[in-house]
Nucleic acid binder design. Structure first.
Lengths: 364, 364
DNA sequence: ACCGAGTCTGAAACCGTTTGCAGGCCATGT
DNA sequence: ACATGGCCTGCAAACGGTTTCAGACTCGGT
């Protein structure tokens, strides 16, 4: 039925060991034998059984990829990057979508651990202790997250937030909002912190709104709060919520960017397709994916772990149509900035009480 | 290091075979032994090595999933459906994104064949002969495609197209366009054919435009042709091109749906987020994914293949804001229907020459 | 002619699991 | 008391590769 190494051996008149060597250590067999064996193997269409090989070598040739939600348009790009690099290194990749269920993720890691040589873990919500436990089970590379010395590829949040704040400051905005994502999300915390720092540095006032689901509907739900807060520009936790904010503002008759500027983070494909096209921070999604598996293969190849198992990727602001100079004319009455705000001391942070929780809404 | 069946056996004071039987054929071992073994196995955290098991049973416990482009928002939903059903049946799934390279797909099937028990194949472009060859290598279920007696789950194109043209006919449209997708796409051919039939039946005139890439940019590129063709409603090959058409029309100052109605196919998440929200044909994407793996496990369980290995899924038109009654007022001069057209006999088909080919544009 | 080193190859053990077969044990029927 | 048969269980052989080890052979140096 299926052709095994022994079939090839028989057909080539050699032993199975020789076939094995010919295929995986070509320089150790005689040239003539090598030629004959490879030819026969080719002709018979022989493909080594990876499971059998894995049994003895202890390597499966598989990677695992765990991510919270494939329907979030951020992820397909990183999956593609991962696949690309994995196939180049002759690995197959198991992908498992956890449906945002962070509590199940450790179990999934455990399940996968035996079947893979390493795992790329995108888990914004898993607890640090679980992360460490996962990493002790099997080689792990974190994406968009850092935890101790676990290898990771993350994005330069500070740099990205700086670009956004500079852009908005250049447009004359003095008081800006941040529609926060899930409280438990590592990226959300990082972005908020970086924004606070940058705004302080640039003399801008930051209003944090939320937390909201990292979805379009989350953004829609945030629109009211954005209006109330009296900001002239708002940053979404990601593109989806930024787009949701735009949608919510539109429903309320507020023009973007004429009255309020909106900027996103991620640069998902959709952002360039909508009207107005979204100004957003481009994260190198596919590069992150590639970098993650490259780290993983390095880890597996080296006996000692690389000295710097953390890669930080640069971001780039792409300016489109959803940001504009701060409106000079007075805004509609009910949205006008209140005088009392103006009198509060210096650049500072306020936190709106809105904590609009809603059940995660699958996007599709 | 890692706990094997022998470790469990030793700890439980039985042989490896007994452990194996206790775990996979519980009714054949004595109750007391069963209890002891399972307890020990649990305590030691034993997990059978699936590769080793697969070596002897011939089953890997893995499925493969081959699809053309994860960045196409149609696919993540079917992937999620597939995963759900696969995990329920205790399968892991390898997913491989072919980057729209139909020529490489057969090779990928060959690669995967040994490592999986079956493959879910989403390949709109693969040639029928290759499809058959793939199916001869390994159990295969086709998604959104049919070929001979290869098991498949597809969508009821005819029914779907009927719903769309009924909707448009009800709105008073008499002459509608279809922005065709890739010529080599099976779905595209099916949709075109179904549309032709339905239009003939309903006394509508159909203008086929294209072919275009199945992307937003493809749709944008089609907008000019849509205008020239003088239709009052247009159907996109999928949501992405429909949205692109809307974008292209907007650039040209044409209002949707006031001047031209647009309908998509797929009902991707984005369609409900844009303005105007897209009227579109909902395809049960996750259901299709689930159905595909259910078919696959049936196929593997049964010694004889099921008598009806083809499932056809119903669609549902979701009416949003991109369709409206045919405008009563005369359209701008250059877009007005020409008199000569009107005199041609009966409902009929015309094919615009536009064949705007462009390199596939990754969406992310 | 002999020895040693070096090169290539084959036999066999091994990876972790399942499974056919046979044997031990007990209860039952004669 | 002995044969019969049904439960359980263990031994050992697979599954398809890789790798250790030792042997065969070649070749150059003495």
């Amino acid at each position: 039925m299926v052709v095994t190494i022994r079939d090839v051996a028989k057909a080539a008149g050699v032993s199975a060991s020789t076939v094995s060597r010919a295929l995986s250590m070509p320089d150790v067999v005689e040239a003539a034998t090598l030629e004959r064996v490879t030819k026969v193997a080719e002709h018979l269409g022989y493909r080594p059984n990876r499971a059998a090989r894995g049994l003895i070598t202890g390597r499966t040739g598989n990677f695992g990829l765990i991510l919270p939600d494939l329907a979030n348009p951020f992820f397909p790009s990183v999956v593609k990057g991962i696949q690309q690099a994995a196939h180049r290194a002759d690995y197959q990749v198991f992908v498992v979508d956890t449906d945002e269920d962070a509590t199940a993720e450790l179990g999934l890691v455990r399940n996968l651990a035996k079947q893979v040589d390493g795992i790329v873990l995108c888990s914004p919500r898993m607890k640090p202790a679980e992360l460490r436990q996962a990493a002790s089970l099997v080689p792990v590379v974190l994406v968009n997250r850092r935890e101790g010395s676990i290898p990771a590829v993350a994005v330069d949040n500070a740099g990205g937030m700086r670009q956004i704040v500079r852009h908005l400051a250049d447009l004359g905005h003095r008081r800006i909002g941040y529609v926060a994502g899930p409280r438990s999300s590592w990226s959300n915390r990082g972005r908020l912190k970086a924004l606070q720092a940058e705004c302080r540095g640039a003399g801008l006032e930051l209003v944090a709104l939320g937390n909201f689901d990292p979805t379009f509907d989350g953004g829609t739900a945030a629109a009211e709060g954005v209006l109330i807060s009296g900001v002239t520009a708002v940053i979404g936790y990601n593109d989806l919520v930024a787009l949701g904010v735009i949608g919510g503002l539109r429903e309320r008759g507020v023009a973007v960017p004429a009255q309020i500027s909106v900027v996103g983070i991620d640069n998902i494909a959709m952002s360039s397709m909508v009207d107005p096209a979204l100004t957003t921070l481009d994260l190198p999604k596919d590069v992150a994916g590639r970098a993650a598996v490259e780290l993983l293969v390095q880890l597996l190849a080296a006996e000692a772990p690389p000295n710097k198992p953390i890669r930080e990727l640069p971001t780039e602001l792409v300016v489109r149509k959803s940001t504009a100079p701060r409106p000079r004319r007075t805004q509609p009455r009910e949205h006008r900035r209140r005088r009392s705000d103006r009198d509060e001391p210096g650049p500072e942070l306020r936190h709106a009480e809105t904590d609009h929780r809603q059940r995660p809404d699958r996007l599709g």
